[in-house]
């Protein structure tokens, strides 16, 4: 290869290399631009931090359980396991719960009584909506007309009658009890319910919610439905 040819080849190859690198650069950059402003990023950061602290809390709790297991002598192991079991039962709603909370009374509105309207049963959609509003705050437990509402519960409209866990909910008035982890949480939820639009939604159905002030002790009944374990099997000792 003569010197002149060599130079031209070099130049052309340089251009080709440059184009290749440009293409590589362009293909490797994300196609969607990050258009979040400072505020949006701060919001997301706050969300992540909240998850972080929740996870830390859970880890701490599990660590404590683990520490209590390791510290125990053989005689007390059964007791510790029983404690864990009780805790899980409580979490699942299989045991009566007492805690800070408040009572909500669902009753026909005075106007509907004055006009002589017939009191209709509560609609399942409205009740589901109400539960969604309550569940915007974490850790709350519910009892609807003396039927414990857990993660296993269901709300159905059966022949025009509202049922929770398959049991009829009486036509208003009836009571809904809400228990929160702390009295502060309870107050927060109370204020949230007072300010939310859910009261208007109930009023459209000629019902009013009378929310009593949070108190320290409200007792919820236990879940009576039992439960079916479809996927887990009990392990025998030999295995």
């Amino acid at each position: 290869m003569s010197g002149k040819v060599n130079w031209k080849f070099t130049l052309i190859l340089c251009i080709v290399g440059f184009m290749l690198a440009l293409q590589y650069n362009s293909m490797n950059t994300p196609s969607t631009r990050d258009t979040r402003d400072m505020w949006a990023i701060r919001n997301e950061l706050a969300k992540e931090k909240k998850i972080h602290s929740e996870l830390l809390g859970e880890i701490r709790e599990v660590d404590q359980t683990l520490a209590s297991y390791t510290e125990l002598t053989n005689e007390k192991t059964a007791e510790a396991l029983q404690n864990t079991l009780d805790k899980l039962y409580k979490q699942a709603g299989f045991m009566p719960t007492t805690g800070p909370g408040f009572v909500i009374e669902v009753a026909p509105s005075p106007e509907s009584i004055a006009f002589g309207y017939e009191v209709e049963p509560l609609s399942s959609e409205l009740l589901t909506r109400f539960i969604n509003v309550v569940n915007q705050y974490k850790g709350n437990e519910l009892e609807i007309d003396e039927k414990r509402f857990t993660t296993l519960s269901w709300i159905r409209d059966i022949n025009g009658k509202l049922t929770v866990n398959g049991e009829n909910v009486s036509t208003p008035p009836f009571k809904i009890k809400v228990v929160s982890p702390t009295i502060e949480d309870s107050k927060k939820l109370y204020n949230h319910l007072l300010s939310s639009a859910i009261q208007d939604e109930f009023y459209l159905d000629n019902l009013i919610l009378t929310i009593s002030k949070p108190v320290d002790h409200i007792t919820l009944q236990s879940w009576t439905g039992g439960f079916e374990n479809q996927f887990l099997k009990e392990q025998t000792k030999e295995e």
């Binding site: 190859l13 340089c14 080709v16 290399g17 184009m19 690198a21 440009l22 590589y24």
Partner: peptide, 17 residues
């Protein structure tokens, strides 16, 4: 060498099409 030069120039310049 020219090819290498071109590639490194392109990568370093950080130009995006």
């Amino acid at each position: 060498l020219g090819l290498l030069l071109g590639v490194s120039l392109g990568l370093l310049s950080d130009i995006q099409i």
